[in-house]
C-alpha cells in the first residue's frame, strides 16, 4: 500500500505490475528527529514510576516520503537521459487528444512512452497504444492524483532511454499540484472552453507548472474566451509561466509545442532549465 496517496491496499493498479515480488523501494529511514526530554513531568514534579510526557522534535515535511520517491525517480530519469513531463489539467481539457497528436508526430524520431493516470479504466492507455507508443495505465482507485511511488513502479516497465516520457496525471486541477513525481516539468493544460479565470480559481496548479498549453483554440471564434486575460491571470499566479496556444484538431500551434519539448530535452540533457 502506498501511504503517500492513502489509497486502500489493492485499489491502485499498475498495468503489468504485480505486488508479489520482492520490493526494492528505496525505503530509507531517516531517524532525524531529536528527543528532548525535559526531565520533569507536566506538573514539574517527577514521581518515579509514573508516566511522563516528553517532547519529540520531528521537523519533517509531511510529504517527505513522496519527495524521496520523487528524488529516486528523478535520478533514474536523469541517468537514462529521459525527459519526463507531468501533464496536469481538469478532466476534459483535451490532454489525451493533445498527447495522441503529439505522439503521432514524434513517433519514430525518438523513444517515447506514456504513463496514464485515471481513477478507472484503461481507455486512455488504449488510445495511446493505437499510436504505436508503449503506455502503462495506472488506476488510482479512489485516489485523486498520481504519486511518485506509483510512477516509480510504472518506470520499471518502461525503457525510454534518451527519449520523452509523458505522464498524464489524473484529471484534477487541485491535488496533483502537491505531488512531485520526479518530472522535469509540470505542464498545465487549459482548454479555451473552461473560462479565463481558472488560473485564479485553482492557483496552486498554475503556480507549480512551468508551461501552460491553451488547447482547443480552433473553437475561439465561437466563444467569448479572452486569451489575453487568461494569460494575464495565469502570470499573476506564476510570473515565470510560459504559454503556448494549440489546436490538436487543426494542428495549429502544434509545432511550437514540439519545439518546446525539443528545447526541454536539450536543456534537460545539459542539466539546465527551459
Amino acid at each position: 500500500m502506498c501511504n503517500v496517496c492513502g489509497c486502500a491496499s489493492g485499489e491502485v493498479t499498475v498495468e503489468g505490475h504485480s505486488h508479489d515480488h520482492a520490493h526494492d523501494h528505496h525505503h530509507h529511514h531517516h531517524p532525524n528527529g531529536q528527543t528532548h526530554d525535559y526531565g520533569q513531568g507536566p506538573a514539574r514534579a517527577h514521581a518515579p514510576g509514573l508516566s511522563q510526557a516528553r517532547m519529540v522534535e520531528i521537523e519533517q515535511d509531511i510529504l517527505a516520503k513522496n519527495d524521496r520517491y520523487a528524488a529516486a525517480n528523478r535520478a533514474a530519469l536523469a541517468g537514462s537521459g529521459t525527459l519526463a513531463l507531468n501533464l496536469v489539467s481538469s478532466p476534459g481539457s483535451g490532454k489525451t487528444t493533445l498527447l495522441t497528436a503529439t505522439l503521432s508526430r514524434l513517433n519514430g524520431r525518438l523513444p517515447l512512452a506514456v504513463i496514464e493516470g485515471d481513477q478507472q479504466t484503461a481507455n486512455d492507455a488504449e488510445r495511446i497504444r493505437a499510436t504505436g507508443v508503449p503506455a502503462i495505465q495506472v488506476n488510482t482507485g479512489k485516489g485523486c492524483h498520481l504519486d511518485a511511488h506509483m510512477v516509480g513502479h510504472a518506470l520499471e516497465h518502461l525503457d525510454v532511454r534518451n527519449g520523452v516520457l509523458f505522464i498524464e496525471n489524473v484529471g484534477n486541477l487541485v491535488c496533483p499540484a502537491g505531488f512531485d513525481l520526479g518530472e522535469a516539468h509540470k505542464v498545465v493544460i487549459l482548454s479555451v472552453t473552461e473560462g479565463e479565470d481558472k488560473p485564479l480559481k485553482y492557483p496552486d496548479m498554475f503556480h507549480a507548472s512551468d508551461l501552460m498549453v491553451l488547447t482547443k483554440t480552433d473553437l475561439l471564434p465561437h466563444l467569448d474566451f479572452d486569451v489575453a486575460a487568461c494569460i494575464a491571470n495565469a502570470r499573476r499566479i506564476n510570473p515565470r509561466l510560459k504559454v503556448l496556444k494549440v489546436s490538436a484538431k487543426t494542428g495549429e500551434g502544434l509545432q511550437g509545442w514540439l519545439d518546446w519539448i525539443e528545447a526541454a530535452r536539450t536543456m534537460h540533457a545539459v542539466g539546465g532549465e527551459v
Binding site: 503517500v4 496517496c5 492513502g6 489509497c7 519529540v56 510529504l63 513522496n66 485523486c144 491535488c175
Partner: peptide, 18 residues
C-alpha cells in the same frame, strides 16, 4: 486537497518515529 491521505502520512511518520 486529500486531507485524508495527508493524515495517513502523518500517522506513518509517527509510527516510524515511535
Amino acid at each position: 486537497m486529500h486531507e485524508m491521505s495527508i493524515c495517513e502520512s502523518i500517522v506513518n511518520v509517527i509510527e516510524e518515529q515511535a
